[in-house]
Design a protein around this nucleic acid. Structure first.
Length: 188
DNA sequence: AGCGGGATTTTCT
DNA sequence: GAAAATCCCGCTT
């Protein structure tokens, strides 16, 4: 299945299947590679989603092509990044909440001074480690300098499904997914 | 280990 | 003008 066809599925379907996939970032001539270990789904029917109240200047990217990156700024100091999913016009995305470094970890320290799991065990932390900010909002993830590389879906037995983190609306949805036992998961 | 507050600014009411 | 898909530090158990 092509990257685009896969990502055009609904966010709650895509989110668990992004676990184990690779993100490859190129910055200042250096290659950084990480593995996705925690995700959350958001869509237009969901009061916790930025897209819930329709398209705005901020959420325009969520309503665009699947496979692009939606980057938002929050709490006055943090960026978080999402993979846009669903058919064009649907306003859905998967938040990348945690990643595990595979390659170039020593370079990640240039932008995020933290060691061990603190490097990337949270949505704003991994954006700092991978130098993801507003400039990458709307970026096509099939292209350099930030590529999403699909991997074979993990066995469901390796995945834990829970309520999402840090929201006050629609708390009951079980739309958070992580690789069971992985040390980089933001909150067990 | 868990709780509480401060940082800091964009976005929407 | 309030809240926010967070993080970090300091204080209490």
């Amino acid at each position: 299945m092509s990257l685009n066809a896969f990502l055009q599925q609904p966010a709650p379907i895509v989110a668990p299947q992004l676990l184990g996939c690779i993100l490859e970032r190129e910055v200042e001539g250096k290659i950084l590679r990480v593995r996705v270990v925690e995700t959350e789904a958001y869509d237009q029917t969901d009061a916790a989603s930025h897209s819930y109240k329709g398209k705005t200047e901020r959420t325009e990217i969520m309503f665009g092509e699947a496979g692009h990156l939606y980057v938002y700024f929050t709490y006055g100091m943090h960026y978080c990044c999402n993979v846009v999913t669903g058919k064009k016009g649907t306003g859905a995305a998967v938040l990348i909440r945690a990643v595990e470094p595979l390659f170039g970890e020593e370079y990640m320290h240039e932008w995020r001074l933290a060691k061990g799991v603190q490097l990337s065990n949270g949505p704003a932390k991994l954006c700092q480690a991978l130098v993801i900010d507003k400039r990458l909002n709307g970026h096509d993830l099939t292209r350099s300098p930030l590529k999403l590389i699909l991997q074979k879906p993990l066995d469901a037995a390796l995945i834990t499904q829970t309520k999402r983190v840090g929201i006050s609306q629609d708390k009951h949805r079980l739309w958070r997914f992580y690789i069971t036992g992985n040390g980089y998961v933001s909150r067990m």
